[in-house]
Design a protein around this nucleic acid. Structure first.
Lengths: 208, 208
DNA sequence: TTCAAAAAGTGAATACCCTCACTTTTAAAG
DNA sequence: CTTTAAAAGTGAGGGTATTCACTTTTTGAA
C-alpha cells in the first residue's frame, strides 16, 4: 500500500493543498490561478485536476480542515458548557466564530459558501453541507445537555431549537464575512443580543 | 425626455431582460451564454454590457422583480395577520415561499444567492442584500403588529426576534433550493415545526 | 532483467465572461 | 440641411477554468 506511486500521490496532493492554503490566504481565492497552484506545487495544470475536480473543490478542502477544528473546539464546550443558558449558547457560538478566521480569510469563506449554494450536487457542495449539518447537530446536542441539566425547559423540541439557533448563527456569519470591515467582536455582540430573548424564553422558569 | 434615444434604450434593456427571464428559466442560468441573450435581444454582446455590469447583474435584476412581488404579498399579511401567533408567522413565511417560484427556478435562486454572498460589494450583491434586509424588516413589523395586538409578549425585542425568524426562514429557503427534489410543502412543514416552539414561547401567557 | 498493462502526468486546445478601441447613430446648434 | 459632439453599439481579443489525446512513469508478471 505504501508503494512509490502511493507515496508520490499523497505527496503531490499535499503540495497542491499547501500551495492553495498559502496562496488563497495571501492573494485571495479569486485571483489565484490554477496555473499558480500548479507551479507552486511543481505539477502541471492537468495534474491539479487529477486530484481536485474544480478550483472550488480545492477551496472546500481547505475550508473543511478549518471546520473540523471548529467542530472539535465546539465539542469541548458541549461536554462542559458554562453555567446559564445564555452563557452556554454564546460560548458555543463564539467558539465557532473565534476559530473561523484561523486559517481562512473572509473572502475564502464567501467563495466557499457561495460554492456550496451554487453547486449543491457536486462533491464540493455536499461536503460543505455535511459540515454545516454536523455543526447544527452540535448545537442541538448543547440544547439537549442543557435540558438534561435542568437549565432548559424539558418540553421543548431540541432539534427544532437547535436548527433555528444554528440557522441564525450561520446567517449572521454570512453577513459577517460579506462585510470586510466588520470585526468578530461586533459579530459576537450582535448575536448575543439576538440570543438574549431566546435564552430567557427557553430557560426553565424560576420556581421561588 | 422621451426622445428616440431614450425610447430605444428602454426598449433594448427590456428586450435583454425578457430574454434573460425566458432563457434562464428554460435552460438554467449557467448554461445561458451572454451571446445567447444578445442574439435573442437582437443586440451585440457589448451592448448587453452597456446595460448590465455582469451576467450576475442580469440575474439579480430578474430576481429583484420577483422579490418585489414577494414583499408586496407580505405586506398584505402584515396589514391583517391571521389570528394566533403561529398562524400569523407561518402565513407571512408561507406567502414568501409560495411566491418564490413564480418566475424563478431553484437554480436561478441558487445562483443569485451565491452571487450575493460572493460579491457583496458589487451593485449586484448590494441590491440583493437590500431586498433581504427589507424582508427582515417586514418580519419585524409583523412581530410589532402582534405585540400591539397583545398576541406577543410586549417585553420582547421585536428586532432581535424578527431577525432570528428571518434568518431561519432564509436559511431554510437556501436548503430548499439546494435540493431540486424538495417540494414547497415539505419546506412549509419543516419551518412550521421549527416555528411552533418559538411561537408558543413568545405568545402572551394565558391569564385564566 | 524485460516487457506489457495500468496509472498518472502533461499542456495545448476549448469555452465563455468581459473589455475596449473603433464605428454608427442620435441630438442639437448654426 | 450641415456639421459636430455626445451617446450608444459593436465584436474581436484577452484572461482563466477546465478538458482530453497523448506521453511518461510505475507496477508486477514472465
Amino acid at each position: 500500500m505504501a508503494g512509490l506511486r502511493e507515496k508520490q500521490k499523497a505527496d503531490r496532493e499535499k503540495r497542491i493543498l499547501k500551495a492553495a492554503v498559502t496562496k488563497f490566504r495571501a492573494q485571495g481565492y479569486r485571483s489565484v490561478r490554477i496555473e499558480d497552484l500548479a507551479e507552486a506545487a511543481e505539477v502541471s495544470v492537468g495534474t491539479v485536476y487529477n486530484y481536485y475536480q474544480t478550483k472550488g473543490d480545492i477551496l472546500i478542502a481547505t475550508v473543511a480542515m478549518e471546520v473540523e477544528e471548529v467542530l472539535a473546539s465546539g465539542s469541548d464546550i458541549v461536554a462542559a458548557p458554562p453555567q446559564g443558558v445564555h452563557n452556554a449558547i454564546c460560548a458555543l457560538i463564539f467558539s465557532y466564530y473565534d476559530h473561523s478566521l484561523n486559517y481562512l480569510s473572509k473572502e475564502m469563506w464567501r467563495s466557499a459558501m457561495a460554492l456550496s449554494i451554487d453547486m449543491p450536487a457536486t462533491p464540493n457542495g455536499q461536503r460543505y453541507s455535511d459540515l454545516d449539518r454536523r455543526l447544527a447537530v452540535q448545537v442541538t446536542e448543547l440544547i439537549t445537555v442543557l435540558q438534561n441539566r435542568g437549565d432548559v425547559r424539558a418540553d421543548l423540541n431540541p432539534v427544532a431549537l437547535g436548527q433555528v439557533i444554528f440557522n441564525n448563527l450561520n446567517q449572521m456569519f454570512i453577513e459577517f464575512v460579506k462585510v470586510e470591515a466588520t470585526t468578530l467582536s461586533v459579530l459576537r455582540d450582535a448575536v448575543a443580543r439576538q440570543m438574549q430573548p431566546i435564552s430567557e424564553l427557553i430557560a426553565t422558569p424560576n420556581r421561588p
